[in-house]
């Protein structure tokens, strides 16, 4: 994935399958790994994309690689199987935990930035890599709250996990924006400290403010400051691929096209619409 420039892509969802199918310049898309059956038929729209030669990246959301417990081998096997089925050059998951003590959180939760959390994350990434035929990229999440007593800065925490696992970085630029805004820190400072040459691809999404906190909703339009951050990122090191994530309240096709064009303009890649 890191050797080929894919340009602008989009997260494939059944609700916008028709829209995605009609994007003439599309070269890559992402699919939520848990939404694809390991053995049954692939969703119709997804098969069409594959036949067109569009690269499809399975994106896991339920492995819980940052959990203190060992990752469930069935979930790893499912991810590996989906990757094989769609011929993916890469898969991705999050630096997060999603369950603990037998209870599902239903959401991606932030890890404490501590040594033991790095160890737990690294152990689970290695267990996953052992079953995968392709590399994995890891995505730092947006968090509304932080744990007390963090031992590492965000950049050091991410870099150490990547260094110890050899994983690629899936950088969500909207998460960088959300975290910096909610913590009152400088997003450019984080970009300057992250290993940008390790980026496999980039997520872009919209959000909304409630009671002074910015929520990374994926159901609103991408705000201008996030597009500006894309430009800043590309000035430092242009990633090979960037994609829009939209997960509900789908706007008319024209608005989605404008968002894809805005990402192309901000990154200097060709429009795909």
């Amino acid at each position: 994935m890191a050797d080929v420039e894919y340009g602008v892509g989009i997260g494939w969802r059944p609700e916008i399958s028709g829209f995605v199918a009609e994007l003439p310049g599309l070269r890559f898309a992402e699919v939520v790994a848990e939404s694809v059956h390991a053995h049954g038929d692939l969703p119709a729209g997804l098969s069409e994309l594959l036949e067109r030669g569009v690269t499809v990246i399975p994106h896991g959301v339920r492995l819980g690689l940052g959990g203190a417990e060992a990752v469930d081998p069935d979930r790893v096997r499912h991810l590996a199987t989906v990757a094989e089925r769609v011929g993916a050059p890469l898969v991705s998951e999050h630096i997060a935990f999603v369950r603990a003590g037998g209870v599902e959180a239903g959401h991606l939760l932030p890890l404490p930035r501590s040594r033991d959390a790095v160890d737990a994350m690294v152990a689970n990434v290695r267990r996953t890599q052992a079953e995968l035929a392709v590399p994995i990229a890891l995505e730092p999440i947006a968090a509304l709250f932080d744990w007390p007593d963090d031992e590492l800065s965000e950049a050091d925490f991410i870099t150490e996990i990547l260094d110890r696992t050899g994983a690629h970085l899936l950088l969500d630029i909207a998460n960088v924006y959300a975290n910096a805004r909610n913590r009152g820190t400088d997003p450019l400072e984080l970009l300057d400290k992250l290993p940008l040459d390790r980026i496999a691809y980039v997520h872009v999404a919209g959000g909304d403010e409630h009671d002074g906190l910015y929520h990374d909703t994926h159901t609103h339009a991408t705000p201008q400051p996030v597009l500006d951050l894309i430009t800043e990122l590309c000035r430092r090191h242009r990633p090979p691929a960037l994609m829009l994530e939209r997960d509900g309240d789908y706007p008319p096709a024209g608005e989605l096209r404008s968002e894809l064009d805005a990402i192309a303009a901000a990154s200097g890649y060709h429009p795909i619409t």
Binding site: A68, E69, A100, G101, E104, L109, D116, A117
Partner: peptide, 11 residues
């Protein structure tokens, strides 16, 4: 432990 902290948070 990390496990206990994560479990308390999810609960």
């Amino acid at each position: 432990s990390l496990a206990a902290r994560q479990a308390a948070l999810v609960e």
